[in-house]
Design a protein around this nucleic acid. Structure first.
Lengths: 188, 188
DNA sequence: AGCCAAAGCGGAGACAGTCCCCGCTTTCTG
DNA sequence: CAGAAAGCGGGGACTGTCTCCGCTTTGGCT
């Protein structure tokens, strides 16, 4: 998705600098870090920040595009290594872990998975959705995943697992535990 | 929990008025409604609001004590009407529905279910926790619920179900669906 | 090289929210 | 009914968001 018209050199410089500082600030202070502060740290005026990224959401999206793409790529790696059913569960595990560890990613992906959130994050959310479609399809063809489960449901359940795990501290043990309760079911 | 020393008449009046307006404001504008605005609507200064409720959390807690108690009471009603396993599932369903419908309740109960959140909401959170202990115990004794599931895990899973359902619109159909996927498990 | 239109910058400032402080008012007590 | 204590309230400091517009930088063009 290269610019149709290349950015002016100073604009490009500021854009990159902002992205860099935003990543640092979000990592340090959480997804609610002050935007004006990010601008200051990047050595630009706040107007410049808001021109490049009209909303906090837009900035978060730009910052986490890489993390989101990595999640989508990871789906294919797992599909190549493991049986379809295992690949799906392992992917959900990594997806939930990513949503917890990378601060702000859960809310961001959440809005991509929300009912009318299609347009908001069309670009980066879609690669994750496509990955889900593939993994779910294969697991169902294999016969280890319930046939009536939709890919979007799997994504939302991963979000739910992340939410539940977060309450317990959000470490790997909790994620595996709640994911296992989901895959196995609560029935005796 | 009556005051050891009764409140002064004007203090009591303001307290009640604030609670009333806060409930209206949270219902209307969500849990992030302006606190100064609530004070204004209640006809008191912001200082008065902050004296009675030092944090937003404290105000939310006070507003939703009733809703939370109702959830705890509902556990016993369901236990009397249904088989233990069904009572637990139905309660989780109502718990998740409550967390979505009563705006702010999900975040509030979330902090009560969080790892170190014991003290924060000791009072109103504990009645819910005790209800969970009862329902889980009976369902396990009956043999319809996995024996290794902890009550706190059930609460966190209800929170997770609410999170997942919210992404789909948060209506009753979604809640039942995600809860059913959890109880039955994802395996074919 | 030098010009100049357009692209882009940046920070002042309007606005909204949170929360504290402390002089003033109301209530309760004897 | 007076005095002390409890409580009030709103001004104001502070932080964050976001816009506006005069000024600067850039890059194509000669």
């Amino acid at each position: 998705m290269a610019q149709v018209k290349p950015m002016r050199a100073d604009a490009r410089r500021n854009y990159d600098r902002l992205l860099e500082e935003a990543a640092a600030a979000f990592a340090e202070h959480g997804e609610r870090a002050s935007l004006d502060d990010i601008a200051k740290r990047a050595g630009v005026g706040s107007g410049t920040l808001y021109r490049h990224f009209p909303t906090r959401q837009a900035l978060l999206e730009a910052v986490y595009v890489d993390a989101i793409d990595a999640i989508a790529v990871r789906a294919d790696e797992l599909a190549a290594e493991l049986a379809p059913g295992e690949a799906l569960v392992e992917w959900m595990n990594e997806l939930a872990a990513g949503m917890i560890q990378v601060r702000g990613l859960k809310a961001l992906l959440g809005s991509a998975m929300a009912d009318g959130g299609a347009e908001v994050l069309a670009r980066c959310g879609s690669s994750v959705k496509e990955a889900a479609v593939r993994l779910v399809g294969e697991a169902q063809r294999e016969g280890t995943l319930r046939g009536d489960v939709e890919p979007i449901e799997v994504l939302r359940l991963a979000h739910g697992v992340a939410s539940a795990s977060e309450l317990g501290g959000g470490d790997a043990v909790h994620i595996r535990r709640y994911l296992s309760l989901l895959t196995e079911g609560l029935r005796a």
